[in-house]
Amino acid sequence: MLFKFRNSNSLTENQVTDEAVYKQRRDILKKLGYFGAGSLLAASTKATAGPFDWFSDGDKAKFATSALNFSKIQTDASSDVLTPMDKATSYNNFYEFGTGKDDPINNAQSLNVEPWSLSIEGLVEKPITLSYDDLFSSFDLEERIYRLRCVEAWSMVIPWVGFSLANIIKKAQPLSSAKYVSFQTLYDPKQMPGQRSRFTGGGVDYPYVEGLRLDEAMQPLTMLSVGMYGKTLPPQNGAPIRLVVPWKYGFKSIKSIVKIVLTDKQPPTTWQNLAPDEYGFYANVNPRVDHPRWSQGRERRITDGGLLAQNRIDTLPFNGYDEVAPLYKSMDLRKFY
């Protein structure tokens, strides 16, 4: 006997109300004259899901993703067991939507990504602005399977769809004075509850910002991702466009990017601002440099299965992407963690 305790957000096909029936319901309500009062109540319950879901009417719509066209690229992680999509899309750190791991999937479904505007500016010859459609059509999309190692000592294997960040930077033609690249997440407290108060947003000073050295940004592994598992990104994973730097801890891979600026100085980064003794600018995956409060020597790989199927594996330097090691030649990685 297997009890299945379903998550509030794992809807099945047969639970989807037919649109015609759904609209009919509203018509009936309207005719009864209850609609005004009803929508007032609905506005106060918002889209927060939780143990009290029984009291909401379950109208919450899931964010719609669509299939992408891409070519598959053989990667170092292609032979690794993929993390199931439902885990990679329901266990997220995205404090803009709350600090709990399931807050993003519960609170981000109504994020509006269309229209979107991503600008590449700063020390470049030709600043670029990409609209929502441009994100998917400006460059050839590739599927690359990467390992993702979180600073919290768990990891996943995810098939991302996107293109090398280098493509877009080359197109903007960086000036010779450009040394660093800074990134910024959307700032929209109306849509992102975590940005409304320090209590729900984990004490982060929003907008979330990240940065790379220009040579790190030009490394072909570094990608801008617009999709995962063959489809456009869901909002909890950083829709419509996010960074993926597979040899660095996950927090470097900034989500829902609106701005990329080339600079001559090392840009501030959110986690470094928050706790400089625990999170550095580089944040390269490094089993020999522990987080001050926990070991980084090993990691728990999230794949299928329950408690008994957990596999703990050794964490590799640069998360196994040795080709990036020359970027840090002659640098003391204990000092520049």
């Binding site: 009890f3 299945k4 885990k87 266990y91 728990r300 999230i302 329950g306 408690l307 957990q310």
Partner: peptide
């Protein structure tokens, strides 16, 4: 008991160990 059961049967989200 229920939460442990959910953990063993992979019904505790992405990382059952952390949830438990």
């Amino acid at each position: 008991a229920m939460v442990f059961y959910q953990g063993f049967t992979d019904q505790l989200g992405g990382d059952p160990v952390q949830s438990l």
